[in-house]
Design a protein around this nucleic acid. Structure first.
Lengths: 340, 340
DNA sequence: CTGTTAGCGCCTTCAA
DNA sequence: TTGAAGGCGCTAACAG
């Protein structure tokens, strides 16, 4: 039974005091080079790993950032976590993920409390609206950064633009000659969807294109709903030549529906998504979409969290990254078939 | 600046000793009902949350399970984590995820060391082969369970069958009348791929079907390779009427390729995947695939971990769950076009 | 039934 | 340049 190596073990083995070992390991205080080398060597040989609990209890920095999420399965979340994880690693920090249900209030407070007793700071990634979730953090007891949160809050938040990305995507379609463009909305609860719709509508107006009710279909960010909404759109007397879906998942559903109707993409129907999840680049044809810079969002969140730690309280900044149109192969000029 | 509430705070506020509070909160020792209620009330009012570091340092159970993964982006991983997370919650435990790179040896030891100082036990989910990763855990210093690991190890492992699932899928195709069936392999490194291929080949032999080299194409579990491999298969002088891909991602690529060639699924080409990731149910047509019970795997891992904790050392069990064919709409009887 | 106390592993003065 | 000692929040053993 190999019990974990403690600082004391290293000290004993190296024939010095614990304080000396601590100094060496933390690069603090002046220790003679000889002692230094010996301690380092012993620590390595013994496979010493600092006990985080002890360090945290003592009140020092643990070098661990916490991340609280409520949906492990979403690729959007996964990308943000990946970005945060890489950024943390780059500055010598670890990232710890904690899952929690959106529903139970007590549960969330417990999770936040737990994480904050372990970590130097916490990143909160919540999908949809869960305002009271946030309320618990607002007492500036602990460095926290909110990711993709659109509500009112004094805390620091990071997100990315939705409006201009949607506008850009719609204009891309307009420049391609499309005049009837369908739109598949997101889930009504989320804050991201409406902004995307607004960008779409404004671009339409700017180009004098029709944006009637019949061209706007309710989706819920899911693939099956994207499929169904597209079928509705294609059943219209004057069917659209392009469809803009409020997220990639819906766009994948739209692609399925188009192929099902024997339509070629992009010849017969152009399709644009939103998010640029990894799958968007590998579907066939590759999806034209608006890149939400999730990796950057994660990395920025880590940076802001570090600033919040050093700066002390909640800085209350609101950072919005730019999203960007990525043109791939699911969009093209209006085909002859439909121009008549 | 609201500093966290400690046990002492609660004790002071309730007018009792810390030991009493501790007893109440842990349901240990006998405390009078009146005191009990008062303590509970004060704790709730103050929003007391136990400091995990202190509890862990003291040597007690923390109620947190660790999970070490090397790929946050894979849906396979996400499902396992989801299963483990739900199972943990059901027994009142939390799950903490720690990411680590597969490459750096020192790094991994550090992560394991860190996690083990915080958690009651650890779940290791490694994709591909990383044998020396495992070696570090083998000293039974700490309850650990390996997920989806196929190598030799004295540690407890949980996984799911690959061979019989592949056999079943192939037989499904054979019963549908397919005689020329293509296969897209997985990445050569992984241990899961070869077993799936073996199941495929044995089923072929059992039915007296051809399994020549030309029908077996090298994939790497990715969608683009699945696409390319399928194009090769479709270019064969005598093209297959069905394709079995070693994982769903490859199967999605195969579906893309088929549609690209103007083939209808399943009328002109049947396609089977492996894994049953969530996307498999929502692509169009819905993918027939072999369900690897990831949620169950995660849940079982949690259960075994608990047993390992209670039982003490590494029990060294090897649990293999059954995989199961899920017939959806991407497979059907051989079409007239190809029967001639 | 309830209070006092030691000590988990570490870091940080302070003293030598 | 190094050693000794205290205390972070908590639990468990022991007194009262």
């Amino acid at each position: 039974m190999n019990s974990p190596i403690t600082l004391t073990d290293v000290a004993r083995q190296a024939g010095v005091s614990v304080a000396t070992v601590s100094s060496v390991l933390n690069n603090t205080g002046r220790v003679s080079e000889g002692t230094r080398q010996r301690v380092l060597e012993v620590a390595r040989d013994l496979g010493y790993v600092a006990n985080l609990s002890a360090r945290s209890l003592k009140g020092g920095r643990t070098g661990v950032l916490g991340m609280v999420v409520n949906d492990l399965a979403s690729p959007v979340f996964a990308e943000i976590a990946r970005g945060a994880s890489m950024a943390a690693r780059n500055v010598g920090l670890d990232l710890m993920l904690y899952t929690t249900s959106v529903t139970a209030q007590r549960e969330r407070e417990r999770v936040i409390g737990t994480v904050s007793s372990l970590c130097d700071g916490v990143l909160i990634v919540v999908s949809g609206d869960s305002d009271d979730y946030i309320r618990a953090l607002e007492q500036p007891r602990f460095p926290a950064v909110l990711v993709n949160y659109l509500g009112e809050t004094p805390l620091t938040t990071v997100g990315a633009d939705n409006y201009w990305g949607a506008r850009q995507a719609t204009e891309h379609l307009a420049h391609l000659g499309h005049r009837r463009i369908g739109f598949i909305t997101g889930a009504s609860g989320s804050g991201q969807g409406p902004e995307r719709l607004r960008g779409f509508l404004d671009a339409l107006a700017a180009h004098g294109l029709p944006g009637g009710e019949d061209l706007i279909r309710t989706g819920d960010f899911s693939r099956p709903r994207g499929f169904a909404a597209t079928c509705e759109l294609l059943a219209l007397p004057e069917r659209p030549t392009a469809i803009f879906a409020a997220n990639d998942e819906s766009a994948f559903g739209a692609m399925d529906a188009a192929k099902d109707h024997g339509l070629r993409i992009p010849n017969d129907l152009s399709i644009v998504g939103f998010d640029d999840v990894p799958a968007a680049a590998v579907v066939h044809p590759a999806l034209t979409t608006v890149r939400h810079p999730f990796l950057d969002i994660g990395a920025t969140a880590v940076r802001l969290l570090q600033e919040a730690q050093q700066g002390g309280g909640a800085s209350g900044r609101r950072v919005e990254l730019m999203s960007e149109l990525v043109v791939r192969h699911s969009t093209g000029p209006v085909g002859q078939e439909h121009q008549a």
